[in-house]
Simulated scan of single mutants.
Amino acid sequence: MAVSLSKGQKVDLTKTNPGLTNVVVGLGWDTNKYDGGSDFDLDSSVFLLSESGKVSTEADFVFYNNPQGAGGAVVHTGDNRTGAGDGDDEQVKINLTAVPANVQRIAFTITIHEADSRNQNFGQVSNAYARIFNETTGEELIRYDLGEDFSIETAIVVGELYRHNGEWKFSAIGSGYQGGLAALATDFGLSIA
């Protein structure tokens, strides 16, 4: 049975699941009724962070246009442009044992594509969640439902996997940002042209 987390909680992933190597992080959301004339396109992105909390290179920013990072240990499975249907909208596969040692944290984010020009924000999004499941067995291990705490934000740091004493843990962060993906990328050490 999955461990259900609240904002700010942390939980062991590999210590409580010995032998776990391949996990999938599934991210999902629904959009509320909206008549602004533009479709919603939410995107998940992953930042592979060093001890400093920053990316080392642009290759450490994994998203639909750069779907692999960490030497292939982190794979974004593709962009869902509508969020339609049940289940995960986007997924990231991770081989925990193959993540290079310089990557200490893996941050998972959701942003709204062209949020400013489309006049969209996370106040119009509901049922956002992240879940981690065992890729081999399909067993859901961790689930974090973000709740409805957002209004004007256009980006969210959902949570992060991080190393602690040789094990992987997950932290439920749930921090909203204004400024969309550009603000997040700058905070994580990328320069946006």
Rank of each mutant, 00 (worst) to 15 (best):
Y64A: 14
S126H: 12
S175K: 13
G19W: 04
V3I: 15
Y177H: 12
N119M: 03
V55A: 12
A172M: 09
A73R: 10
L13D: 07
D39L: 04
S50Y: 00
D79V: 15
G26D: 02
P100S: 10
V157H: 06
K10C: 06
E58K: 12
A130C: 08
V99N: 06
T31Y: 05
D149M: 00
V99R: 10
S6N: 13
L49P: 01
E148P: 01
N127Q: 15
A70H: 13
N80Q: 13
F61K: 09
T154Y: 01
G37E: 04
D35E: 02
F150V: 00
T111R: 04
A128C: 13
S6P: 05
G166K: 05
V25I: 10
I112Q: 11
L146N: 07
S4I: 14
V24I: 12
N102L: 03
L5F: 08
D12H: 10
R163I: 04
S45T: 15
Q124T: 02
D89N: 15
V158L: 15
F108V: 07
W168D: 06
A185W: 00
R143V: 07
F122W: 12
G138Q: 01
V74L: 07
G19S: 10
D60W: 03
N119W: 00
I132F: 03
S38K: 12
T21E: 08
V158D: 11
A182F: 01
S171D: 08
T77K: 15
F170I: 02
N80G: 05
Y162C: 11
D41W: 00
T97H: 10
P67M: 13
I156F: 01
G176L: 01
